[in-house]
Amino acid sequence: TSPLDMEHAIPREQLISTAVKFLQNPRVHQSPLATKKLFLKKKGLTDEEIELALQQSGPAPDESQSSGPS
C-alpha cells in the first residue's frame, strides 16, 4: 500500500485526537498494547504522541506496566 501523503497534511492535534478515539474503541482497547503502539507508529505517530494518546484514552489498564519518564 502506498503511504498516503495526505497523512502529513493532518495537524498533529487531530492525529492525536483520532488516536485517542481509536484507542477508546472497545475492540481496540482489548488488543495488546504493543499491537496498538505498532499500529499508531505505522500511521505516523511518534512515540511521544502515542504515549499522549494512550494517556488521554484512559489510564493504563495495569499501572505496573506504565513505565517511562513521568
Binding site: I10, Q14, T18, K21, F22, R27, V28, T35, F39, K43
Partner: peptide, 16 residues
C-alpha cells in the same frame, strides 16, 4: 492478524 490490521485501518480512517 491481517484482518485485525484491516479493522484497525478502517476504524482509524473513519475517525479521521
Amino acid at each position: 492478524f491481517a484482518s485485525q490490521e484491516k479493522f484497525f485501518q478502517e476504524l482509524f480512517d473513519s475517525e479521521l
